[in-house]
Design a protein around this nucleic acid. Structure first.
Lengths: 208, 208
DNA sequence: GATTACATTCATTCACGTGTGTATGTATAC
DNA sequence: GTATACATACACACGTGAATGAATGTAATC
């Protein structure tokens, strides 16, 4: 069982990432060995070390598999409903919750990110990339809220930065809290109502 | 250096927990050895194994050191402002943020809980206790929001369960997001305003 | 288009370090 | 004198990373 065609090699690479996803989810990133990942993927550590430098690289690649498509979707949303900033915010929130509720891979990977790994200097590059991503998202949110403010849609007395902080905290919290115990409430059913609570807090109130 | 008085023994126990706190924070729970904890505490692994069964027991004890006082404070709050349910909610939120901003031990331990450990079956008891605690908090919140609803203080169309979910997500998110990068905004200064965004979303709107 | 030469894709093996749990030693408080 | 509060020592398992092997795809050559 050796030198395969390019397509077959790509398939084993994917199998390794699938295996990593499963084992990371079950045992946590730090507690899983490359041996377990390889076994789950039906290969040996040799294959893993061929495709990836070490466990961090596996983790990294596993993240990219779900983050890249999501980034593209967000860009798409921004282009479509670019006119109304609060609508963009709302769509992004709904998109996140829908992904969580419906896409198993997304749910599993983010469970790993939130509850099955340690964000520590040892995984270096991952942490830095995550922080960079984080600041990028924050900047995007602030820009939308600033536009909302100019349109009189932001609650009076609230700065765009504060709005961004509140919204981020809320979205991060939904992920963290719900993924910790998905049985605590029905995300598909209650999600939109819960998001609208946050949006109501952020929006200027018009009394009819 | 051996058999000490009871008070001295309790002091070394505390020193071990202090060391664990520091090393867990720096390297993550899974990546720290009892040897490192012992060294930081100025003792050997022998002392650690005498006071605790294993690393999980150390982690457990470290958590209790901050959770017990916090529980008592919340009980105190509930007794004082028992009349106004939304005021209780607000006080609890403020208390949490104040602890985060001011109490270094609280901040470090919760950084560990949120970003430096893996919640996986391997740490068994801790996970179960956390889930139990979680359901308990949720029940308390729902009770307060139910009372608020009867007083006409809850946003119309919102159920107490939804309100509890939204509030929990928000508070968890503040912890998760801010602790990941405390430099991203000034929690002491902006915290109250951000909390009030959430509360505004949860409250019924009175148009004057 | 068959052969040759080389690169790819893994499997296998080995050397090494590191952490754990326990057993044992020991001096002191009680 | 005995239980306590540690320090020391030991046996063991596990994981890593690199080195090596092996078999096949692929491309160049004739």
């Amino acid at each position: 069982m050796v030198r395969r065609t390019k397509a077959e090699a790509a398939a084993t690479r994917d199998a390794i990432l699938d295996g990593a996803e499963a084992v990371f989810f079950e045992r946590g990133v730090a507690h899983t060995s490359l041996e377990e990942i390889a076994r789950r993927a039906g290969v040996t550590r040799g294959a893993v070390y061929w495709h990836f430098r070490n466990k961090n690289a596996v983790f990294d690649a596993m993240l990219e598999r779900v983050q890249l498509p999501l980034d593209e979707l967000i860009i798409e949303i921004e282009r479509q409903s670019g006119a109304d900033p609060m609508a963009v915010i709302r769509e992004i929130a709904f998109l996140g919750l829908r992904k969580l509720a419906e896409n198993e891979r997304y749910r599993r990977v983010y469970t790993i990110v939130f509850h099955r790994c340690e964000f520590v200097a040892a995984i270096g590059a991952v942490v830095q990339r995550r922080n960079a991503r984080s600041r990028q998202v924050r900047a995007m949110l602030e820009a939308h809220f600033a536009r909302a403010q100019r349109l009189g849609q932001l609650r009076t007395g609230l700065t765009p930065a504060q709005a961004a902080s509140a919204f981020r905290a809320f979205m991060v919290g939904i992920h963290d809290d719900w993924l910790r115990d998905p049985e605590q409430f029905d995300l598909s059913a209650e999600g939109p109502a819960i998001v609208d609570v946050m949006l109501a807090g952020l929006s200027d109130q018009h009394c009819t």
